[in-house]
Simulated scan of single mutants.
Amino acid sequence: MAEHPNAALVRKGYEAFTRGDMDSLRGMMASDCTHHVPGSHLLSGDYKGQNSIIDLYQRLFQETDGTFNVQLSHVCVDGRGHAVSVHRYTAERNGKRLEQNGCLVFRIVGDKFTDIDECQEDMDKESEFWS
């Protein structure tokens, strides 16, 4: 059985992110897409629009001297425009190492991401890493 188109879109997004292919990622987002980063650290907040989101993604690499790495585990869909990805991510920054699970909740209209909610396994650990 073929993979659901929303799951395939999410996988394609992770592949582009891993390659650092921000142009491909931009093409997968609606122009007014928003990425929500929870917590209380330097990257927390709502990133509205393609440019703002791409800046966030580039900053993940810059702040970690290119050590930010994400490994997609699986994608679940509901067939109504939502997809949830589960991943493990690692990074090093200022002598600290972060390794934990996370997920992204995508809202998809047509073939574009319109909203991305980020969830983390341990928000305190995340905030301490980025402080």
Results as ranks from 00 to 15, higher is better:
residue 14 Y to D: 04
residue 94 N to M: 11
residue 124 D to G: 10
residue 62 Q to F: 13
residue 27 G to L: 12
residue 52 S to A: 13
residue 121 E to W: 12
residue 27 G to V: 08
residue 56 L to I: 13
residue 72 L to I: 12
residue 103 C to K: 05
residue 25 L to N: 04
residue 103 C to T: 02
residue 14 Y to G: 01
residue 107 R to L: 08
residue 73 S to G: 14
residue 126 E to T: 12
residue 121 E to F: 07
residue 35 H to C: 12
residue 18 T to G: 01
residue 96 K to L: 08
residue 82 H to N: 11
residue 110 G to D: 08
residue 17 F to I: 01
residue 121 E to A: 11
residue 81 G to V: 01
residue 49 G to W: 00
residue 12 K to Q: 13
residue 2 A to G: 04
residue 83 A to G: 05
residue 76 C to G: 01
residue 29 M to W: 02
residue 129 F to W: 07
residue 21 D to M: 05
residue 4 H to Q: 05
residue 115 D to E: 08
residue 52 S to Q: 09
residue 9 L to N: 00
residue 116 I to E: 07
residue 75 V to Y: 02
residue 118 E to M: 11
residue 99 E to Y: 03
residue 9 L to S: 02
residue 126 E to H: 07
residue 74 H to S: 11
residue 25 L to A: 09
residue 108 I to A: 02
residue 38 P to H: 10
residue 101 N to A: 06
residue 17 F to W: 09
residue 40 S to I: 10
residue 71 Q to F: 02
residue 90 T to G: 03
residue 59 R to A: 14
residue 62 Q to V: 14
residue 90 T to F: 06
residue 94 N to E: 15
residue 63 E to W: 13
residue 46 D to M: 04
residue 46 D to C: 05
residue 40 S to Q: 15
residue 3 E to S: 01
residue 93 R to M: 12
residue 26 R to N: 08
residue 105 V to W: 01
residue 58 Q to F: 07
residue 115 D to V: 02
residue 57 Y to S: 09
residue 119 C to P: 00
residue 62 Q to T: 15
residue 119 C to K: 01
residue 78 D to P: 00
residue 112 K to R: 00
residue 86 V to D: 00
residue 56 L to R: 10
residue 1 M to S: 13
residue 117 D to W: 05
residue 13 G to V: 06
residue 114 T to Y: 01
residue 42 L to C: 10
residue 50 Q to T: 12
residue 104 L to H: 10
residue 108 I to Y: 04
residue 92 E to S: 06
residue 71 Q to H: 13
residue 14 Y to N: 07
residue 22 M to V: 12
residue 36 H to S: 10
residue 80 R to N: 06
residue 119 C to H: 10
residue 9 L to E: 03
residue 19 R to F: 03
residue 43 L to A: 00
residue 8 A to K: 11
residue 98 L to A: 04
residue 73 S to A: 09
residue 130 W to I: 11
residue 131 S to E: 15
residue 47 Y to S: 06
residue 51 N to F: 02
residue 81 G to P: 03
residue 2 A to N: 08
residue 27 G to K: 12
residue 15 E to T: 08
residue 53 I to L: 02
residue 122 D to T: 08
residue 109 V to M: 07
residue 103 C to W: 00
residue 33 C to V: 03
residue 37 V to L: 03
residue 108 I to S: 07
residue 107 R to H: 14
residue 60 L to K: 10
residue 26 R to T: 14
